[in-house]
């Protein structure tokens, strides 16, 4: 009986180790295969790949800068819009709203995260883009047109719409993480502030101060998501590899150039260039996510200590 137990334990454990090892294997293979396939362009272009501004696959000219620019600007724009809103929602759910309201509202915000990217894209093309073209863009041009960001031809398809769509998509993600962090801030911190005659908002500020590094982590996590978002932004950003200060102009992101061109990249060099861009995206999101996790985990640990 004891014998079958130990054999059973060994078999069982081996199976589990194998399943866990598969995750490790996937990651290692992924890195290896991408580096391997990107080698042709890494060798031929080196750093100039990352800083080149021209992208002409037909002539084998590969400069990824417009895509890097588009990825960063659209993501930063998304953060500028999403962070204050997400903080507001999280504070409302944890600090302000009674539970009866917070529970259903929180669930509805979670549902926003469940909507697939392609659905945001569809809605973006047919609802948001016309809205930006006919109302929001017109408004911005009229009152802030003196800024270089809000000049140029307004089609509704471009960086601004892309940034807004990304913002809508990362809002529920940032909200969820901030919410979890605010919930672990000890009640004693709130009571300490209240007992000194702090108002609700002043108390909330103390709570936010407690959660500061975790909130930073949540924001960076949102950044990671925005950087890698593909379908929705591909559908509304205009897919044109240019660097323009105007948010009305079309742009391109790394993820969208991959989505739009990868299937057609028959030439080996072109494929290598696209995979190298994928590698860049992979490494950047890897670092960003790891850093965010670290920040969030540290807050959790301190709160539970």
């Amino acid at each position: 009986m004891a014998q079958t137990g130990t054999i059973g334990d060994k078999v069982f454990r081996t199976i589990l180790v194998i399943t866990a090892a598969i995750i490790l294997l996937i990651m290692v293979t992924m890195v290896f295969i991408m580096v391997w396939n990107a080698l042709p362009t890494i060798k031929s272009f080196g750093l100039s790949f990352l800083i080149g501004r021209e992208w002409k696959p037909a002539d084998s000219i590969f400069g990824a800068l417009p895509f890097i620019y588009g990825t960063i600007v659209s993501s930063v724009l998304a953060l500028i819009i999403a962070v204050p809103i997400s903080l507001g929602i999280a504070v409302f759910l944890v600090e302000q709203a009674p539970k009866k309201i917070a529970t259903p509202v929180g669930f509805m915000v979670e549902l926003l995260a469940a909507i697939p990217s392609v659905v945001y894209g569809l809605w973006g093309i047919f609802v948001l883009a016309p809205f930006v073209r006919d109302y929001l863009g017109v408004f911005l041009e009229k009152y802030f047109g003196w800024l270089p960001f809000f000049q140029g031809r307004l089609t509704g398809i471009g960086m601004l719409t892309g940034g807004i769509i990304l913002a809508l998509m990362i809002t529920p993600i940032i909200t969820a993480v901030v919410r979890d962090i605010l919930e672990v801030v000890p009640t004693q911190q709130r009571e300490a502030a209240l007992a000194l005659g702090a108002t609700k908002w002043e108390t909330t500020q103390i709570v936010l101060g407690n959660a500061a590094s975790g909130i930073a982590g949540a924001v960076i996590l949102g950044l990671g998501r925005a950087l890698g978002e593909t379908m929705a932004i591909t559908m509304v950003i205009g897919n044109s590899p240019q660097i323009s200060a105007s948010l009305f102009e079309p742009a391109y992101t790394i993820a969208s150039v991959l989505a739009a061109n990868f299937a057609d990249a028959t030439d080996e060099f072109y494929l290598s260039a696209l995979i190298e861009m994928g590698l860049v995206l992979f490494l950047v999101t890897f670092v960003v996510n790891a850093f965010a996790k670290l920040l969030v985990a540290r807050v959790g640990k301190r709160m539970h200590a």
Partner: peptide
């Protein structure tokens, strides 16, 4: 891996 963009 959860954070890796799905296009990758």
């Amino acid at each position: 891996l959860i954070g890796v963009p799905s296009i990758i």
